[in-house]
Design a protein around this nucleic acid. Structure first.
Lengths: 202, 202, 202, 202
DNA sequence: ACCTAAGCGAGACGGTACGTCTCGTCTTGCG
DNA sequence: CGCAAGACGAGACGTACCGTCTCGCTTAGGT
């Protein structure tokens, strides 16, 4: 998390100093983890990063922009399958996303982001954009399955991705990331196979 | 929303004055609706209710306690189907819940509650309890369908309810309550019928 | 300058706390003396007084209001004569005013006030009011002399007071408060000789 | 105030670019006039002059240095009489000085200089020098009158000049440059009558 | 009929964070 | 090397709320 250099970190000319950006993102992450969203303040980040507030506001116009950046730096590789089976892919996706949130600090950062979005329209827009982007991304699982003929073409990949990420979100937001594999599998199974009783000939 | 009397509303002796409690809850709700969670402040509530701040802090020690009280006074009836078809029931449930949130103020109050729960453990616990209760409640749709033989017994009603409410939550939290009926139907369809290509003989 | 109590100095109800006012004025004076006008800040005063900034802004809407208050608390008794001679009275007035400015800290406070008035219209108005009030006050010397018949009625006491205070101001502002008595007497003499009633035969 | 060329004004080699110096002084003057001393900032001057801040700091190490330079470029001719009467000369001097300050921008620049001198010793020294020089210069009126026999030799011209300029300063600093002629005449009259040689028989 | 106890409105208090401004320093790349 | 440009750490600005406090008042219930 940075080498925590002692020496002053000044301007390097008429362009952004990446050392400052790093220090600020590191400090923001640390503050978020230590104090949580409620105790998170630009003031505190500036203090910890030994940066001036204007330097922060210059590059992250809003608190949510900073939060989003912190989150994105943290994003690890989420497993998008390739197992050859859409059901297995969806399971792996959910388990890996929820595990990532639970095991790293990114879950708590994302919770902050969601909280911020509930009061800050800019954060809301940023989060909506991000979520849409992620839906598009994870919809790839479905499109791959369609290419394989596993899923018919009239299924909307976005809607499936929406169901999956909604499930993950609500578990994150209500402290239920530790759902066991069987439960996740059953949720995924419901989406893959449906919940209706199969016709006799099925 | 109260008669908003002009005359001073003082003490009625050595016990709580219900008129003040009402005025404060009304004011809190109004502030929440007008300004959203971000612009919500105890200060503002006190101002609008013409109440002293200590009067608020005396009865609602934290912001989340007040928020919860406001939300509880607001509960409206959600449509749990009875159409005879689980798919139609699920569609009606989602549409009615999302419409309720969108059209009344309860959506914005609930958003505030979710936001608060992300940093306040007390609010988090209250929200988790509430969500579990609601899942149990809306799982009834599935149990009814199982009784009809429409859904096999090995489907977990809680998981289905979880998928549905998760979908609604994530749309609430990302400002997508105005999803059109066709989209909601497709999501519900995925859960009911699954997304896999049906076998030729099916 | 205050007993520097250690214990917290909170609210005493819905009215101004004089202890806070005193602590703030003391702190402001000390800051002004230690750091001069350039280094004077509301922030610094609040810090030293252990007061919140809003407490300062509540009672002194502008920096100049605070400066003026500090100055006025400091104002010692200026000698307005009563020697029976207008020339002697004017001399004593100037010498006592300039000595007071030089020997106490009020000179440097007043310099700050004048400086502030050059950039802040509110301070300018406050200073103008104050200066006019003082001219009226010190004009009393002349009115007394007129009552004695020492000065003719058509002399405007305000103009004489203006000449005297202008002389004192310009010496304050250019670090010449240590003018010797002989020089002050000569300046006063120039003015006195012009306003004396001429002897009938003179 | 300069042609304010649109094209970039870069370096002209390893020496000072006079065009930049001019642009900076022009911009400083304009800022001072438009926004007054309070709104005067190096930042603003650089912006208006399309100059880099370091260029300003390179040549004018302090704000007061820049202020002085601006004032010096501005000197206008003040009327030192020659009317043959010391009283008339003094009146013309005051009226012309105050009018000059009022009608051109030099008054507001001088006010800034005085304000700056109250907290900046360097500026204070420069102002004191300048004021002494001006007193010597305007004392010439009195010396001329002494040569004519209108004023006795034991009157100190410096003290008379001090009274006059003090009067002008204090009116400048308290926004009273628009004093009418009659009032100025009465002030001058007070001084003049005191320094006139008295006719033997009155 | 008094007396005490508690709730009430009001609003001041010491704090903290906000987002903006300017300071004076620094380092670049161009001319 | 001077120049325009502009990022940097620093820190003050004036405002908004926080949660706590003390006041003077009102009313009810216990004596």
């Amino acid at each position: 998390m940075g080498k925590s250099g002692e020496e002053r970190r000044g301007s390097i000319g008429a362009r952004r100093n990446p050392a400052s950006a790093d220090a600020i993102l590191d400090a923001a992450k640390a503050e978020l983890i230590e104090k949580g969203y409620a105790g998170f303040s630009i003031e505190g980040v500036a203090r910890r990063a030994r940066a001036g507030k204007p330097t922060i506001y210059r590059w992250w116009p809003t608190k949510s922009a900073l939060l989003l950046d912190v989150y994105q730096r943290q994003k690890g590789g989420i497993d998008y399958g390739g197992s050859g089976s859409i059901e297995e892919d969806m399971f792996r996706f959910l388990r890996s996303l929820m595990g990532h949130w639970r095991k790293t600090s990114s879950g708590s950062i994302f919770r902050s982001l969601v909280a911020e979005a509930q009061s800050n329209p800019e954060a809301a827009a940023a989060l909506a954009d991000y979520a849409a982007f992620r839906r598009g991304h994870s919809g790839q699982m479905v499109r791959d399955a369609q290419a394989r003929g596993e899923v018919p073409a009239d299924v909307d990949p976005e809607i499936v991705a929406d169901l999956l990420s909604s499930y993950a979100w609500s578990h994150l937001l209500t402290d239920r990331l530790d759902e066991d594999d069987a439960t996740i599998r059953r949720a995924v199974h419901a989406i893959a196979r449906g919940i209706l009783t199969k016709p006799a000939a099925g």
